[in-house]
Design a protein around this nucleic acid. Structure first.
Length: 937
RNA sequence: GCCUUGGUGGCGGAAUUGGUAGACGCGCUGGAUUCAAAAUCCAGUUCCUUCGGGAGUGAGGGUUCGAUUCCCUCCCAAGGUACCA
């Protein structure tokens, strides 16, 4: 009987599907376990071998937890809104829904053949109206909420309105727009409905505002900061410019501190936590107000507010710098400086963000001619503008302390500005001194002699007393722009009355995407939904009607933007708990049962996107009482990337010769990617196949070495253009899903990135064949002591490995176990039965088959995990390594119960010891019973 | 620059609290079986060696009876981030 993996795998995949083996119940006496893999975007290219890595890991853990007696939820779905389907639609006219459906079917086929224990009855698709109904619902909840800093949580907007009605907004501490006016109750009550709505918009957690956005002309859409890499769009690498637009934004900044604090209580990888911490970018300091000295006779009211992390260095200020975009620039510039300043401002505006970032070394700036008054010394301080100050951070203005900040120092040197030294005993003739811990302040009036810490406290107290500033915490995190000018995304449940946004009631949701002729922006520059003819809201009938019926009385225009990619993924993990519920995003029973994700596995590329936004929405849902936990995933693991091993041929420049790798030395050759499927395990290229694949080489002369063409190899990211993509289908066909699963795990530690090399799969495949052979004869006889020892050390190791996510080492443990049992000629059912369970999380198909051959009728999935028993591992003797000066020289078998003294005597009297010592007396003998003996001499 | 994670044979990678470095697998070498091949099985495989042994985990130093593991300095790679005041 041979190991017929094709038949076995098909048989059990069918069995699991028919018996709904992995269907999770929302009600169980067992403890719950929620294991989740990040759901994929179903791209047209299908899966390559890198994609399943994380899914396999989650699957192993899920299956293990099931063996351990847990009620396991292990769902899968699709993040199915996105740009590629839309761009395909633009090119071909095919509806993105069709493309998406096709891609999903292809994904499902590929996933199914890998034998995952997904509960497919809970599948979600973000582009499905029954799903996005609840994405729209969350949006409305955010619209109807404000952030109360006093209670430090989000509250319903009605509580804000009732405060406004009673006392205005003087006592409110809220996360709101900077330009929110102050008003008392009488003023509020006198506002028109529209004015009230305008004010409320400044408080809502999702709000409409004119924001400077990252506009990508090539894609015709706005991008979030995390969708831009090195100044160009992440998708496609198109240039991005700054542009002012009216956009929906999410007030994530309200949660900055809680997003930071929450990191302490979740078990997520340190690098991921660090990048979220950096992204949030908390800095502690003070805001300080400087009065602008009027150069006219009348008193100037202008003030410049700066944020500084070093208010203690305020006596070192010798100039101020404003961002060229700062609103005061035009106002304070003196007539003499106007030409120069205008020219500089214009030149800066022309430079793209990218140029400005790339060019950090050039120092540039212009003096405005204006001065500010130092709040303590009352000295005039020249005000400059310079593009090293960014309008988007802090207040867009800095107090420059050249002795303590290198950029200020360089600027001062360049423009010959005074550099006063306020640090005791520090030389600043060459560079600024930024180390705040190792010196004391001097030349600073009442701060003299104080350390950084004490000076900070004192200066902030003083500033607050004078009304010239206060202690402040600043965050780099910006509110998240939530509008996209795309077709293939969630429509906003919003229509406009008199220019003010109105929400559509839940009972009328989902608001479904309209059909459009074209998926491009309209000729007037409106988003693709502007092409829809049926896209107006009738408030009487509560339905979508034709645009021509818009009368602004009962029929109103609908929002034309759609939501960004992260909208659908920010609560999907909770929706899995109750995915078919049409009355609520999930029932209270479901969320109270499942609580949160126990294990979340996915790529690290989502660190500052999906994983930050999801935490934000979860905290909001928590504040509103919808979810019991304010962090959605207790443990998170980033699986490493599987890289490809590209192959190269070497074509000589100016000739038609292609040289084998060993012959390129000294020749002027260019490496050219060869498809990896044309190369065998020994790096030999199938030259004929290559010529067929690239006909332009059909007349080329291939110069061989030893009769073979050897390719060069290099590890690169897997990508179509590098011809190094390895597809799991072919591997499943040749070796089976169990081999692929084992091999992906065997490759190396889960979190590490590692190169793929298909050749190695024969190792795990022949392991499975050996495992199969072990079960050809099964007898009901007593296992030997050796059998039990092998089994129990395997149980122990595999259990530890799974708990530590060290899946690679358990694959070797299985190999050792099977090798040992084979040489022991083990046929005992009492050993082979538990072994099948151990293997089952990793190689579930073969395990099920062996399990049924052992006479079991139920699936192995629910079989209890074997119990490790120490007694089978107890040894009576130990082969001691005998080392001399720390180097192991020989081994000596001694009883484990031998005393230290006896061990020492036995070792010292051994002839090899004498040989090693060559007559010297040992200076010292270290005996660690059960471990080692070390002789110093 | 800063933060994070790494650096071990030809390759992927093992090594519990410091205690036999190189498990397991690939590849390679030799052999068995075969008409032959595939498959399978057996033996060997860190490097150097005068075959006694010696060296060795990115480099250098330190702590220790003993360091891949702990400490210091440096180098290299990957990822994140950046005129962030």
């Amino acid at each position: 009987m041979n190991y017929d993996f094709r038949e076995i795998e098909a048989k059990w995949q069918k069995y699991w599907a028919e018996n709904e083996t992995f269907k999770a119940s929302n009600d169980s006496d067992k403890p719950k376990f929620y294991a989740l893999s990040m759901f994929p975007y179903p791209s047209g290219a299908g899966l390559h071998v890198g994609h399943p890595l994380g899914y396999i890991a989650t699957d192993i853990y899920s299956r293990y937890k099931r063996h351990k007696g847990f009620n396991v939820l292990h769902p899968m779905g699709y993040d199915s809104f996105g740009l590629p389907a839309e761009q395909y639609a633009i090119q071909t006219g095919q509806h993105p829904a069709i493309t998406t459906e096709n891609n999903i079917n292809r994904y499902r086929e590929q996933l199914d053949q890998l034998g995952f224990s997904f509960d497919w009855s809970r599948e979600v698709r973000t582009s499905n109206p029954q799903y996005y109904k609840w994405t729209q619902w969350i949006f409305i909840q955010l619209f109807n909420a404000w952030y109360n800093k006093k209670s430090d949580k989000a509250e319903n907007i009605s509580s804000l309105i009732s405060i406004f009605e009673k006392e205005g907004n003087a006592n409110i501490e809220a996360a709101c727009d900077d330009d929110t006016p102050s008003f008392d109750a009488a003023t509020w009550n006198a506002y028109s409905e529209k004015e009230k709505q305008e004010i409320l918009l400044k408080y809502r957690l999702t709000y409409l505002a004119d924001t400077e956005v990252n506009w990508c002309p090539a894609l015709g859409t706005v991008l979030a900061n995390d969708e831009i890499v090195n100044g160009v769009s992440e998708r496609g690498g198109h240039p991005v410019v700054r542009k002012k637009m009216t956009q929906w934004s999410m007030r994530i900044t309200a949660y900055a501190q809680r997003l930071l604090d929450g990191l302490n209580k979740i078990d997520w990888p340190q690098p991921l936590k660090d990048s979220q911490t950096n992204w949030i970018g908390r800095s502690v300091g003070a805001s300080v107000t400087f009065d602008v000295i009027s150069n006219e006779s009348e008193k100037s009211q202008d003030t410049i507010e700066v944020f500084t992390t070093r208010p203690d260095t305020i006596f070192g200020v010798s100039f101020m710098t404003l961002a060229p975009e700062h609103e005061l620039v035009a106002k304070i510039t003196t007539p003499e400086q106007k030409t120069e300043v205008d020219a500089y401002v214009e030149a800066t505006a022309k430079r793209s963000e990218r140029d400005r970032m790339a060019d950090v070394k050039t120092i540039s700036g212009v003096f405005t001619g204006a001065y500010a008054e130092h709040p303590f010394t009352k000295e005039p301080i020249p005000i400059w503008i310079g593009d090293y100050v960014l309008a988007s951070y802090g207040t867009g203005a800095v107090m420059a302390v050249p002795c303590g900040d290198q950029r200020d120092y360089d600027f001062a040197k360049h423009y010959n500005i005074d550099i006063p030294n306020i640090f005791e005993g520090v030389d600043i003739s060459e560079e600024a001194f930024a180390d705040k811990e190792t010196t004391v302040i001097t030349n600073s009036d009442f701060l003299n002699g104080l350390s950084y810490k004490d000076a900070m406290k004192k200066i902030i107290a003083e500033l607050e007393k004078m009304g010239h500033g206060e202690g402040k915490v600043n965050y780099r995190l910006r509110d998240a722009v939530f509008s996209r000018q795309r077709y293939w995304g969630e429509p906003f449940p919003v229509y406009y009355v008199d220019g003010m946004p109105q929400m559509i009631d839940l009972e009328h949701l989902p608001l479904q995407l309209p059909e459009v002729e074209k998926y491009l922006p309209t000729e007037t520059g409106e988003p693709p939904l502007g092409n829809a003819t049926e896209w107006a809201w009738d408030v009487k009938q509560c339905t979508v009607v034709n645009n021509q019926l818009i009368d602004h009385k009962t029929v109103f225009p609908l929002e034309l933007n759609t939501m960004p990619g992260w909208a659908g993924s920010s609560q999907y993990f909770n929706r899995y708990m109750d995915p078919r519920n049409d009355d609520a995003i999930f029932s209270p029973e479901a969320i109270n049962y499942w609580q949160d994700v126990d294990l979340y596995i996915g790529g690290s590329e989502h660190a500052t996107g999906h994983l930050l936004y999801s935490r934000f929405w979860q905290k909001f849902m928590f504040d509103m009482g919808y979810v019991p936990k304010d962090e959605f995933a207790q443990k998170l693991i980033n699986q490493g990337m599987i890289t490809g091993t590209s192959a190269f041929v070497y074509r000589e420049l100016d000739s038609n010769k292609v040289y084998s790798k060993g012959l390129i030395e000294g020749r002027n050759v260019v490496p050219i990617h060869a498809d990896v499927s044309l190369v065998n395990a020994s790096d030999e290229l199938d030259v004929e196949a290559f010529k067929q694949w690239q006909p332009e080489y059909k007349d080329a002369e291939f110069i061989l070495e030893d009769g073979k063409y050897i390719v060069g190899r290099e590890v690169e990211k897997m990508s179509k253009s590098k011809y190094n993509v390895v597809n799991p289908d072919a591997i499943c066909e040749e070796y089976g899903a169990d081999s692929l699963r084992l091999y992906e795990m065997f490759l190396g530690p889960l979190e590490q990135s590692k190169p793929w090399n298909t050749a190695g799969i024969t190792g795990v495949h022949s392991f499975l064949k050996k495992l199969w052979k072990l079960y050809l004869t099964i007898e009901d006889k007593e296992p030997t002591a050796d059998n039990l020892k092998t089994l129990h050390k395997t149980i122990k190791k595999v259990e530890e490995d799974i708990e530590n996510f060290s899946f690679n080492t358990s694959v070797s443990t299985f190999m050792i176990c099977v090798n040992e049992l084979t040489s022991q000629k083990c046929t005992s059912k009492a050993v082979l039965e538990p072994l099948a369970i151990l293997v089952s999380p990793y190689a579930p198909h073969i395990a099920e088959e062996l399990w049924s051959r052992l006479g079991n009728t139920a699936s192995i999935a629910e079989a209890p995990f074997p119990k490790f028993e120490e007694k089978y591992l107890v040894e009576s003797s130990k082969e001691y390594p005998i080392s001399f000066n720390g180097k192991m020289r020989f081994k000596l078998e001694l009883p484990l119960d031998m005393s230290k003294e006896d061990i020492e005597a036995a070792v010292l009297s051994h002839e090899k010891t004498k040989e090693q010592l060559q007559g010297r007396d040992p200076k010292k003998v270290i005996v660690v019973p059960g471990k080692i003996v070390n002789i110093v001499g």
